[in-house]
Nucleic acid binder design. Sequence first.
RNA 1: GCCCCCGUAGCUCAGUGGACAGAGCAGUCGCCUCCUAAGCGAAAGGUCGUAGGUUCGACUCCUACCGGGGGCACCA
Length: 554
Amino acid sequence: MTPEQLSEAIVAALRSLVDAGRVQLSDPVPTEVRVERPKVKEHGDYATNIALQLGKKAQMNPREFAELLAAELASADGIAAAEVAGPGFLNVRVAAGAQGEVARRVLEAGPDYGRNDQYAGERINLEFVSANPTGPIHIGGVRWAAVGDSLGRLLSFSGADVTREYYFNDHGAQIDRFARSLLASARGQEAPEDGYGGQYIHDIAAQIVARHPDAADRPDDEALELFRSEGVELMFAEIKASLHDFGVDFDVYFHENHLHESGAVDRAIARLTELGKMYESDGALWLRTSEYGDDKDRVVIKSDGQPAYISGDLAYYLDKRERGFDRAIIMLGADHHGYVSRMMAMCAAFGDEPGVNLEILIGQMVNLLRDGQPVRMSKRAGTVITLEDLVDAIGVDAARYALARYSTDSTIDLDLDLWASASNDNPVYYVQYAHARLSSILRNAADLGLSADLAAFDPALLVEERAGDLLRALAEFPRVVARAAELREPHRVARYLEDTASTFHKFYDVCRVLPQGDEEPTDTHRARLVLVAATRQVFATGLGLLGVSAPERM
RNA sequence: GCCCCCGUAGCUCAGUGGACAGAGCAGUCGCCUCCUAAGCGAAAGGUCGUAGGUUCGACUCCUACCGGGGGCACCA
């Protein structure tokens, strides 16, 4: 019995009470009842507070209401007991056979177990990382790579048609500094005062010189342009490669120039003008964002006739909508949170619904500690911690897991010494180990000629408390996935896997799965093997949603 | 001055109104002739930043304050 099925059973019981006239509700019977897993075992397998919630509407004492409901529910299929506790909680125990059926459901669904359709038919554009190609992806960007990619997986698993998008430009002040730094390196000069440092500058400069031996000797303008265009190309290739090795691939790399060349900026401004959202003042063209909650209006075209930064955002948003996306999700670091209100205002000015058609997820920063002291990162000094540094230190799995297991609302402090040395400190091993153990049992079973056979599966044999705990954990998985997708919080999947790993290890400790020595396999062995196979599936799927490998052996 | 995020066990963090607040790691004690000990069990560890408020019920919602972090351009 899954929580959803129990919810249905409770709704049916409510309806039956109302139909029989034993309870009068001022509102219609709810279509769904929230079912929770109590923290304390004595409170049963599942609990609901529905009687507390409906007590007033039924003009009844919540306990009395709960008593009626308990009596009605006790006769339902698969329910072993229903009792009232505290102020009116209804605690339910599920019959072993009904509980065991969860394992069958998992195996029948296979890799699709946990899938939901809350975003079916919806096209979502998910933009993240979007670092300009002036250097390797640094530690902050890595967080969005891990979380963003995982969120993409969750949204796809929830029925959405997801496009992962990376937005960049290759001109402007940042890129100029990059080009001047490359040229300085090629000429054997020190990096410019406002330039970039680090070995990668020298490496890329050397590659360009290898391609064009006279590159550094050309006139400044020509040389700069060459180092700019080739430098961007080489840098971007490196970024894509390191993201790929990190398990993150984008569907679209969107070049800002495209917006200007395609006339998207002009069209966006024309549209907003038509809607009466633009006005001229002090020789500049302004957007009335303050009408939609922004602190002040924003300049779109500067008085010198050049488009301001926001013009690109306007055009880009419009472009996404014109490409058919129902929803644009953008992940940004906390240092960009000031943009949120103007972006939302911009969305509203277009006549769209902020928070629905446009969503901006703000994540907090990653701090690095070494010897317990904060590490100062400087692009100029080249002391930036990159995606590759992180992967070299702890590997892709640990890095992705570590970055995805925390709420993006909280700042992460990463202790580099600890990660580089005692990587056991990372919970990813605890979770992966569970998968390896499960795989090992299934391998050994195959050697004994046993497999998880649903035809011979008797769910009622999974009677142990620890088996029930594990089954209930597996039954939670779809709810966890749906909630993580809905709230854009992949870390919920990681936390769930940690809890479930613990539940499995405890089960393993007291329930022997395979026959020992000359022992003949019994139906109990077979039933437990089905549970093991189902558990393995959930770990494989869950780790997959995080982009972390599920090892067969450790 | 205004805006956003955080403050929970020694450390890193879960917990978006429900019943005695949880995990991983670190530390104490115990458990490998048998499916992976990267595991399990036991003990220990907390004024959930502070003070009010809403509620039958608050770590969770509201207000104020304290502490930490990040932002507040006709820069990109």
